[in-house]
Amino acid sequence: MAWTMRLPDDEERALNAQAEAEGRAKHEITRDAVRAYLLRHRRWDTALLTDDETFDLGGPISKADIHDAMNKPA
Rank of each mutant, 00 (worst) to 15 (best):
W3S: 13
M70N: 05
M5P: 09
R43K: 14
T46I: 09
A33S: 12
K63A: 15
G23S: 05
D68C: 01
R6F: 11
E22N: 06
A69N: 07
V34F: 05
H67C: 03
A69Q: 08
R40C: 06
L57Y: 08
A19L: 04
R42L: 07
Y37I: 03
P60H: 00
M5L: 15
E11V: 09
I29C: 12
I61S: 05
M70Q: 10
A2N: 02
H27D: 13
D56S: 10
V34I: 15
A25D: 13
L38E: 11
K63T: 14
Q18I: 12
N71V: 03
L49N: 05
A21E: 11
A36P: 03
P8H: 00
R13F: 12
P8I: 10
R6E: 15
K63W: 11
T46K: 14
P60E: 07
A33E: 01
D52Q: 13
D52I: 04
N16C: 09
I29Y: 01
A64N: 11
L49H: 13
D32N: 06
R43G: 03
L48C: 03
P8E: 11
A2R: 10
P60R: 08
P60G: 05
A17G: 10
P60K: 04
E28P: 02
G23Q: 07
A14M: 12
A19E: 02
T4C: 07
N16Y: 07
D52E: 15
I66C: 02
A14G: 02
A17D: 14
I61A: 08
R24A: 04
D9W: 00
A36D: 10
P73Y: 03
